[in-house]
Design a protein around this nucleic acid. Structure first.
Lengths: 262, 262
DNA sequence: GCGACGGAGCTACCATACAAGCCTTGTATG
DNA sequence: CATACAAGGCTTGTATGGTAGCTCCGTCGC
């Protein structure tokens, strides 16, 4: 009557875990990760229809894991499921972006507040190393790498604060912010500004200047709002229309081609 | 080639939505809500096995919606799924409680900071009304009602801050805290203390005293830590053992009876 | 007596089939 | 020509079957 596994298992608890799984990853987890990446990178633009059957055929799996992945994505509001109608990549909602920004700012600032007290030389060196790589990616014009390093920077920053599992919470909020930031990246002057802001945070962190660090990070995070108006004017179809909540449009960007570029 | 629903649909976007659905709720959503309530109320104690087949039989539905509900619960770490082994109500992890507390505190304090600037007489009156009801529930010794009102209080507080959708984020973190608090409720002196702390927050809010409000709420929220050591010593089987992460024990509390009380 | 091994019984995972609802579109009708 | 209507094709929701994997426990070998 008593069952227990042969040994402790620390992994495989969170479905959302990315990275390399030790042996094999569940199909659901794999599909979830693929779709999540394509949505946050805008490879699947907001408003795109996501058919369970179609995805299952493309990925060569059955509907079940695809459906389960879509349910998880729906729970984090990256897709919208309309029963008996269809599933769509959620459009960018400015209020939702502001809420996500609020959550992220609250958590990261609180974490930074503790990081100021805890950081050591190694932490500072690691952060600066990431910034150097970011400058390289910036010079090379590699947007994907740049974004990956940006994520690494903020992640490392939270590790310094001593809260290791906190990153997952931020990730959920960050997904919505990333889509907006992806759109603003093509704008000039943005990239260098981001790196400068990161540098200011590390500088203040090294000098254990709490107020300066928090102020710098806040300014950095709130930069999302700088261009969002411009972006919305340029790509209105990617945003939810004012006064018209969540209207799916069952029309793909390019007929017959799924997941085409913007 | 163009499909769109007959009219705008604002509801049914989040699976986690509780409350009364307009027409009919999906089975998955219903099962999810039931299980979530039973877990956070400790009706299903940490460590309990949750078999898809068994739950499906008890609730008279198929395994599919039960499975999907369990996946969602696993995503918020309320259950742990061990592939090919079993699903269990997650044990209370002190580090996890601390992380959840960190998230909640960061968000609620940031929201309160804005609420101080926005609150009007009606808001204050509503909050005080909730406190009166809480005193009644306290006098009557009704724990469930008390907890419901506690939730209503904090929820109303976030509405005052102007961030309506933020409560959902807090809810996820709060679930883990609630289990710990449920256990500490039987301890004497706790309930009156909680009400007093709530009152202090509202008082400071009414006087627009930012520092006092934030300080009072912080003290209130950190009260979770006061008794957690005592609780863990009293109910060690509900917590994850030190140095032994997530070991499911396939043995129910009372043989043959599911969901028995603690 | 004690340890290794293999079947039994359970689990979650994935695949598939059926059901119910919405939208489109062809068609009949005023 | 415009409108009402019904069939068809699509969608997601639910139900069920089959498979791989893990633990338990009886049995065999030492």
């Amino acid at each position: 009557m008593d069952r227990r596994p042969s040994q402790t298992r620390s992994a495989a608890s969170h479905t959302r875990e990315s990275g390399v799984s030790p042996a094999r990853e569940s199909v659901r987890s794999r599909v979830h990760g693929i779709l999540r990446g394509q949505i946050t990178s805008l490879e699947l633009p907001p408003g795109s229809p996501l058919s369970e059957n179609e995805l299952a055929n493309e990925l060569q799996v059955s509907r079940t894991p695809v459906r389960e992945a879509l349910i998880l994505l729906g729970d984090e509001a990256l897709v919208e499921v309309f029963p008996k109608l269809g599933t769509f990549v959620s459009r960018i909602s400015v209020p939702a972006v502001m809420e996500a920004q609020f959550v992220r700012e609250a958590i990261e600032l609180a974490a930074l507040h503790e990081a100021v007290k805890r950081s050591d030389a190694q932490d500072i060196a690691d952060l600066r190393a990431i910034l150097d790589l970011q400058r390289e990616a910036c010079a090379a014009g590699d947007a994907d790498t740049f974004f990956g390093l940006d994520e690494a920077f903020h992640r490392r920053l939270m590790e310094v604060s001593g809260h290791r599992t906190l990153w997952r919470t931020v990730t959920t909020a960050k997904a919505h912010l990333d889509r907006a930031r992806r759109l603003s990246l093509p704008l000039p002057h943005r990239v260098e500004t981001l790196i400068d802001e990161h540098t200011s945070v590390v500088d203040a962190l090294e000098e254990r200047d709490d107020a300066a660090a928090v102020g710098a990070l806040r300014g950095h995070l709130q930069g999302v709002f700088d261009d969002i108006g411009t972006i919305q004017a340029r790509h209105p179809e990617l945003f939810v229309a004012d006064g018209d909540e969540a209207v799916p449009v069952r029309r793909r960007v390019h007929p017959g081609v799924r997941g085409s570029q913007v």
